[in-house]
Amino acid sequence: MQNYTIRKYISADYLAWNDFINQAKNATFLFHRDFMEYHQNRFEDYSLIVEDHKGWVAVLPANRAGDEVFSHQGLTYGGLIYKEGLKLEKVIFIFKSLINELYKTNVSRLILKEIPMIYCDFLSDEVKYILFLTEAKLIRRDTLAVIDLSTEIFFAKDRKEGVKRGKKNKLIVKEENDFSAFWNAILIPNLKNKYNASPVHTVEEIAFLKSKFPSNIRQFNIYKENELIGGTTIFESKNVAHSQYISANSSKNDLGTLDFLHHFLITDVFKDKRYFDFGISNEEQGKKLNGGLSYWKESFGAHILTQDFYEVQTKNYTKLEQVIL
């Protein structure tokens, strides 16, 4: 078995880390250090680098809380990141080395939040197989509503009617660089009133991230005449346009606000992407489904893709010792 060295990320690794992420087969801009570190005051970074005698072979974007390491609580998805061409046998040995090192440093559990396959450049289920071998426990499963834009899209009748209402009301969609109007007039009040919650990102944070990733983070607002009535914030990666935030004022159903907006994004702005991801409609760690929200997303022609969360006992590194025949 090849020997691997596991070490924690340090600031001197900034350029090498980002270069590795850019070459990985299962990574997006969310793993860039500028994205990971915007909320560094909220998490104890515990990102790990795996090296062999030739250099870096894998990384794990992660944070630590007590005796648990998470991949990563501040990111939508995560997991072990590696380049295309790395064979399954090596990934098994790399993962064994990683959780063995965690075990030796008094980490009892690794919590993995998998990256959905639509975000990967190549099929990347090596770790899912390894989770089976290590008897990892499935602790959460969310449902994403995803449109495959390479196939013919069928919009439901009520979505088409919403688009017609939007056209009748002469709604206008504008891409804008300023997030403050949408955050302050629409998003924050709606989340407060409906869920007593706040956006994951403050307006200052999303503006900072936009400055770092101008082509990846995009804001689309929708207006009736000159009044802002709704919008969506898109996180755009190589293969996927993802609606990070969707919100509109109380007139949305009468005006067809969100139907008109997303029809435009799907059929025009992002028509050349492979996938459009509406994100999850789950609550309570995946145990509950917001049926109305899921139906609305699916009625754009979206289908369901699951995202799994696993708990790995680090002591189970021994279960990877006698796998290869």
Score class of each variant (00 low, 15 high):
Ala27Met: 07
Asn63Tyr: 10
Leu255Cys: 03
Tyr103Gln: 07
Val146Pro: 03
Thr28Ala: 05
Glu161Pro: 00
Asp142His: 06
Tyr4Cys: 04
Ala24Met: 14
His72Thr: 08
Ile206Leu: 03
Val146Tyr: 02
Asn18Ala: 08
Ala185Val: 15
Glu321Ser: 11
Val323Arg: 03
Asp158Gln: 14
Trp17Cys: 15
Glu298Ser: 10
Glu51Leu: 11
Ile217Leu: 09
Asp268His: 14
Thr306Lys: 10
Ile92Lys: 11
Phe309Met: 12
Pro61Phe: 11
Lys160Thr: 04
Ile92Cys: 06
Ala197Val: 08
Leu305Thr: 07
Phe208Ile: 05
Leu133Gln: 14
His242Asn: 12
Leu320Gly: 06
Phe182His: 00
Gln23Met: 07
Gly74Asn: 14
Asp259Asn: 15
Val240Pro: 10
Ile206Lys: 00
Ser251Phe: 00
Tyr119His: 08
Asn290Lys: 12
Phe132Val: 13
Asp13Trp: 10
Val323Phe: 04
Ile217Phe: 01
Glu161Asp: 10
Leu60Trp: 03
Lys137Asn: 05
Asn226Phe: 08
His53Cys: 04
Asp34Ser: 15
Tyr317His: 15
Ala181Phe: 14
Phe260Pro: 07
Phe264Gln: 12
Lys96Pro: 00
Ala58Gln: 11
Asn106Val: 05
Gly162Ser: 05
Lys212Met: 01
Gly286Pro: 09
Tyr295Val: 11
Lys164Asp: 06
Ser71Trp: 12
Ser11Met: 02
Asn316Met: 06
Val127Gly: 02
Glu68Leu: 11
Leu265His: 03
Glu225Cys: 05
Glu284Pro: 01
Lys288Arg: 11
Tyr119Trp: 02
Asp178Gly: 06
Ile99Gly: 12
Leu255Met: 07
Phe155Asn: 07
Lys54Tyr: 00
Pro61Val: 13
Gly78Tyr: 09
Asp158Asn: 15
Lys164Phe: 02
Ala27Tyr: 10
Gly85Gln: 05
Ile49His: 01
Gln307Pro: 09
Leu325Met: 05
